[in-house]
Design a protein around this nucleic acid. Structure first.
Lengths: 348, 348
DNA sequence: GTCGCCATTGTGAGCGCTACCATGCGCGGG
DNA sequence: CCCGCGCATGGTAGCGCTCACAATGGCGAC
């Protein structure tokens, strides 16, 4: 009795076998075509493609990752649960992870925590690749520990790509340069700068961009226009107070991130200055803060979701190729930034 | 030649078979225990549990969903990508999803989009349960469409639990009541209120709590102290301008969310008032904004991550029990809120 | 002509898990 | 005393895909 009982397959969902039959080839060939492998005749490839389109075949992620044995569990290390970019980062990660059928694990790491503990957690959770956003991505010892656990990793938005890791960044210096050049173009000459946390490598880059833009416009650097901050709103408050207390006050202030820019707007208002009429303000990152407050901030958009997506892509490659071994790191992708012009900047 | 070539399995990752061997039972029994099915002796169950813990076994999501099991793909519907609570919501979801070995799909839904399209997307993605946070959770037609697709769902933080869905909330009215009572206790008598978006059901509840607290303190309601807002920072700007323009100005302002409270702080500063010395301000939700700005906001903490966790728990139960069928909805869990006292409120 | 080589395609097994039986066992009713 | 029932557990067969390897075929070199 070859009575084939209704198989467990739900209803529709064509499989490789269906496509193979339709195209008159073997399942393996279908697999090859779908995965874009070489060494398939163009004619065959076309036939399979046609069958795929015809049947509306979509590969089953679960089956694929089961068979491919690349059960990727990638960890997203974070220090500050309320970091502004986290939400978008997560969005990008989830999107890509969903598409690739891999699992995303959120892993909190307190910079004061002992490194070996982290390593142990990663191992016991069978993590096999790690995503390291700021500010963690600038902690060399952290990277080293992960490296020792032989896990490939990607630094996201670091200013100083390590040899131990891959990296996805924007060109922070060029972005700052472009933003300041824009301010110069619309007539500003005295431009204040609020620096970021000195522990994060991007801070120095953004400052360098600012300085280079001024130099390019033949404006002499004025140290009183550059004040320290640490990326927090509160530090932005103090910094902009200093800047606005200056005898000859700046007509524009460029803060190294959106939180500090928001603080600058608040301080300006407190001093009876309107933004942007009396003072132009701009930030960096284009986080939610930039569009939450009013006036909405002119800022540099960092494509965080896109960065996450690419980071995961890199990780997949790394685990695939080197089978958890010889991944040496070092791939570095630099994405395009964008100057987003909104309401907090006006021509001088 | 039974020469068994090195299997494709990577290195570690214990499987059901490993656990079964360790516990001296069959893989099937392990599966049963792991999935919490009945009809397993307590003694056996304990033995398996021990083996699981011992080996650090974690089910392989891919294999599970391949095997035709309840391939749990739960969708998180969101409207606004930069909503403040999204980040924490995601955190809670991911944590729980990771633990339960189910897949979280982020699904964007524009309230202007045609409902049938959404339904189609959910089906084609093989979603089998849905999480609906604000503001979507108050769109009855949306809930109806999901219901028709026979998908169980949970409304998160709605003010008006639907019969069609489960719900996880806090008691918004009681929270507002408690916060206002606190303001009254420390001497405030003229307390302004900025209402939330009238399309969201929590708005009315929060207002009711405010009014009830005043009534309980025998304070006559003053309509000029209640102004409309819509949960945006910008609306908070206008609303608090109104409030501070009043002849007899309030000594405290309670905004229905943190963004509007932040706007209120900004406006107060612009008017030369210090917070909290001249004006106390408080918000609602305890989003990142509350601790980003300075002074940090006194607010009502909504345990968003915890809510997400419980919501997923409910969904798992629903899909398990009713096997995508008779889940009638209606479970409603109400969590405790917390008044978080920070720096934006002072005694009168 | 024969060999060997590469490019192309096919074969069989198995990834880890669970659905669907089958089995064994104790027990109460006929 | 045996039947049948219900509970606890085991065995087997896939889920859809891709791996390693085998087979095929065309073509140039000797």
């Amino acid at each position: 009795m070859v009575e084939k009982r209704a198989s467990r397959r739900s209803g529709a969902a064509p499989t490789v076998a269906d496509v193979a039959r339709a195209a008159g080839v073997s399942p393996m060939t279908v697999s090859r075509v779908v995965n874009g492998e070489p060494n398939v005749l163009d004619k065959t490839r076309a036939r399979v493609r046609a069958a795929v389109d015809d049947l509306g075949y979509r590969p089953n992620v679960a089956a694929r990752s089961l068979a491919g044995a690349r059960q990727d569990r990638i960890a997203l290390l974070y220090a500050n649960p309320s970091a502004a970019y986290l939400s978008e980062l997560l969005k990008g990660c989830l999107e890509q992870a969903g598409a690739k059928g891999l699992q995303l694990i959120l892993e909190h790491f307190d910079p004061n925590e002992a490194l070996p503990l982290l390593a142990a957690r990663l191992v016991s959770q069978r993590i096999n690749a790690v995503l390291v956003p700021p500010p963690l991505c600038d902690l060399e010892p952290l990277l080293e520990v992960i490296r020792q656990a032989r896990l490939p990793m990607v630094q996201i938005a670091t200013g100083n790509p390590s040899r131990l890791a891959h990296a996805v960044t924007i060109d922070d210096e060029a972005a700052a340069f472009a933003l300041v050049r824009y301010l110069l173009e619309i007539g500003h000459r005295r431009i204040g700068f609020i620096e970021g946390d000195s522990n994060q490598t991007v801070s120095a880059l953004r400052r360098k961009g600012y300085e280079r833009a001024l130099a390019a416009a033949d404006i002499l650097p004025d140290q009183s226009l550059v004040v320290e901050g640490d990326f927090t709103y509160r530090s932005g408050l103090a910094a902009s107070e200093n800047l606005l207390a200056l005898g000859e006050r700046p007509t524009a202030i460029f803060a190294s991130n959106d939180d500090m820019a928001a603080a600058t707007v608040a301080v300006a208002h407190k001093h009876g200055l309107s933004v942007p009429e009396d003072l132009s303000v701009c930030g960096f990152d284009d986080t939610a803060m930039a569009t939450t407050i009013w006036p909405r901030l002119t800022t540099v958009r960092q494509p965080v979701a896109e960065m996450a997506r690419i980071a995961i892509e890199i990780l997949v490659q790394a685990t695939e190729g080197g089978r958890s071994s010889g991944d040496r790191g070092g791939e570095h992708v630099q994405l395009a930034f964008e100057i987003v012009k909104r309401d907090s900047v006006a021509p001088r």
